[in-house]
Design a protein around this nucleic acid. Structure first.
Length: 612
RNA sequence: GCCCCGAUAGCUCAAUGGUAGAGCGAGCGGCUGUUAACCGCUAGGUUCCAGGUUCGAGCCCUGGUCGGGGCGCCA
């Protein structure tokens, strides 16, 4: 705080006078605003934003009924506690807030239907007395997740546990605080109304800050204020964990940039955005497993450490237990990997595909879903060094089957997010990418576009667009080209198929000459491009003909013997088969509208980024 | 890896080479069934780091660190 000393005084005086000038100025402006508001019979708001007069009417809604909450009166209460005891009517309004008439036996009202009464009783059956720190007997009520609390009937007694989003105070009715509490189970926090007659009101409740963890006992009631349908009238608020310095709490109740939140990845999950991302990510992961399970796919756990280099391309992370400072050497000076853990050079996997193909060629339909590692020095919003990839592989299938599978899977996932997480999706629609719900719905409804690479090149060449890189058959499409196709030309996901073989991996099946009228040989590859993300899926039909595969391995300058077990699949009962890889984080990006891939994985790994 | 841009209060950002400010957040007080609340006051700074130019550097120069965007690699 302050360090008052002779040295500091002169600058302080100067600052104070400037301060004063400024405040006189803003004060005059505010006065003008307020006077205008009064003339127009409106309520003044900050920055001159005026609220409609309806606000006042809303505040005076007569149909809301204040209630008194019972406090423990010493002695044992639990045995006598049952649903209707929880609330006492203090004053009668024309229409009670709790949806049925007071019961004479209890003098209180809680549940309107038989089912709701039953539900109350069963929850209350779990009550038990508990000795609390302040030597007062309190009641532990049924702990409910906030998502369930929102669905419970008014009058339900419950406990919620979570973290404080905001606290607002009011002096009305002798003083009360509104505490927004979230526990991550749904998008919205629940509003807890804590009255000043709670024993720890002054000392604790009125000092709650964003980030504090609390347990709240109370009764669910229809809200008197607008902005939420229900709220909790608290009978007890227990502070579990304080925020030690609210001034430096990294995710205070305000807007933060995603760049900043990346630096506090351990706390960013408490924000509404990252909570929503986590839930949608979970829903998508579950949807993927469900999608495959419903279609008789088996989930195969392919190895994370591998000695094979799946595609002969791409930087890999090396896995070694050798002492870097004292490496064993062979006589010719090379590192002697015979001394290493696996007695050979080993890496983190860049793809489970080659392994999962073996299961495909025996279990027919399989998939992997696991972490994948690329040591490329990629600095983009769509690349990670560690990401999760889904790789299905289907036997007795060609590229058309593969594309169909990709189409169905993407649609299934989108539909799951839209139907299972409407609250989170509404948030993404309003705050992250306007209109995303509609666009996703359109993806589900429309048939997927499938377009040969050769035709795509023609479209681009005839587009009249100025591209930084010239479009030319035989070269890989640049991301500006892909974006033009999916974001401008088709305005929907597009699967490009049958790429020139020179730009694709050795295991992709060679097409017959002249396929799609292409000038040179193509392979049965498929890339699914989606707006905003680019390549969501990369896949192919696999080369099942041994002699063609061997030729391709040779052409690529690879060593046949390294792939001996992969080649065996072609020697013993080979079948046409196909598969693809879907970058899970890119799917999450596509569904949420988040722009940077580092924000859709809990703890991003990228070049120079592995803090958490 | 290449090309651009940036780094100033807890956060988001201002500030011709000449006395470092605002909004939000925080603390205190006022008002209020509140909800991006509002009003007043207060505190809060090694202007990323190391050098250099200058009477004087947040600003100009050099080097570094970190972050962002685009491209490449891909999923």
């Amino acid at each position: 705080m302050g360090q008052p000393g002779p040295d500091h005084r002169p600058p302080r005086r100067r600052r104070a006078s400037r301060h004063a000038r400024h405040h006189r100025r803003t004060h005059r402006t505010n006065l003008r605003r307020v006077r205008r508001c009064l003339r127009e019979r409106r309520r003044p708001d900050r920055r001159g934003v005026l609220r409609p007069a309806a606000f006042e009417q809303q505040r005076q809604r007569p149909d809301l009924l204040p209630v008194d909450l019972p406090r423990p009166r010493g002695g044992r209460a639990p045995a006598r506690l049952h649903g209707p005891c929880a609330v006492q009517v203090r004053s009668i309004a024309p229409r009670p807030v709790l949806s049925h008439a007071p019961s004479p036996r209890s003098g209180g009202v809680l549940c309107s239907t038989r089912a709701a009464r039953r539900s109350c009783r069963s929850r209350l059956g779990t009550f038990r007395a508990r000795w609390h720190g302040d030597a007062k007997e309190t009641v532990e009520m049924a702990w409910m997740k906030i998502k369930d609390a929102f669905k419970a009937p008014p009058g339900t007694e419950l406990t919620v546990k979570g973290w404080v989003r905001t606290r607002r105070d009011s002096k009305a009715d002798g003083g009360l605080s509104f505490v927004a509490v979230h526990d991550g189970t749904c998008f919205d926090p629940i509003q807890v109304v804590a009255r000043s007659d709670l024993p720890n009101y002054e000392g604790e409740i009125a000092r709650l800050n964003t980030g504090c963890s609390v347990e709240v006992d109370g009764v669910l009631v229809a809200s008197q204020g607008k902005g939420q349908a229900v709220e909790i009238q608290a009978t007890a608020v227990r502070v579990i964990g304080w925020v030690e310095d609210p001034d430096t709490y990294p995710v205070s109740n305000k807007r933060h940039s995603f760049e900043y939140l990346r630096e506090v990845a351990h706390l960013r999950t408490r924000t509404n955005t990252f909570g929503a991302i986590a839930r949608v990510r979970h829903t998508l992961a579950c949807a993927i497993h469900r999608f495959f399970d419903e279609r008789d796919f088996f989930y195969v756990h392919t190895p994370i450490i591998t000695a094979s280099d799946a595609e002969g391309a791409g930087q890999m992370f090396q896995v070694s237990t050798l002492d870097h400072m004292n490496l064993p050497r062979t006589p010719d000076g090379q590192v002697d990997y015979n001394e290493d853990f696996f007695a050979r050079k080993a890496h983190l996997t860049v793809s489970g595909q080659l392994n999962v193909e073996t299961y495909c060629c025996s279990l027919s339909r399989v998939y992997t879903f696991g972490p994948t590692f690329r040591a490329e020095n990629s600095n983009t919003s769509r690349h990670l060094a560690e990401f999760w990839m889904i790789e299905p592989e289907i036997a007795f299938a060609d590229l058309q089957d593969d594309a169909k599978l990709a189409d169905e899977m993407v649609k299934y996932c989108i539909d799951a997010a839209l139907t299972e997480r409407p609250d989170d999706m509404r948030f993404f629609d309003e705050r992250i990418e306007k209109g995303i719900i509609e666009r996703l719905r359109a993806v589900v409804d429309k048939p997927m576009r499938i377009l040969p690479y050769t035709d795509a090149v023609k479209i681009l060449q005839d587009s009249g667009q100025k591209f930084e890189y010239r479009v030319q058959w035989g070269t890989d499409l640049q991301s500006e080209h892909e974006r033009y196709l999916t974001e401008h030309h088709f305005k929907q996901p597009v699967a490009l198929i049958n790429y020139p073989k020179k730009i694709k991996a050795f295991y992709m099946r060679e097409n017959d000459p002249g396929t799609d009228g292409a000038p040179d040989t193509t392979v049965a590859a498929m890339d699914l491009l989606v707006p905003g993300v680019g390549e969501l899926i990369g896949g192919s039909q696999r080369e099942e003909r041994l002699e063609v595969l061997d030729r391709r391995i040779e052409e690529m300058g690879l060593v046949k013997e390294d792939y001996w077990w992969y080649r065996d699949l072609r020697r013993y009962g080979t079948v046409p088969h196909a598969g693809f890889g879907l970058g899970f984080e890119r799917l999450v990006q596509f569904v949420t509208g988040m722009q940077n891939i580092r924000d859709v994985i809990p703890f991003p790994r990228a070049p120079r980024q592995a803090e958490f």
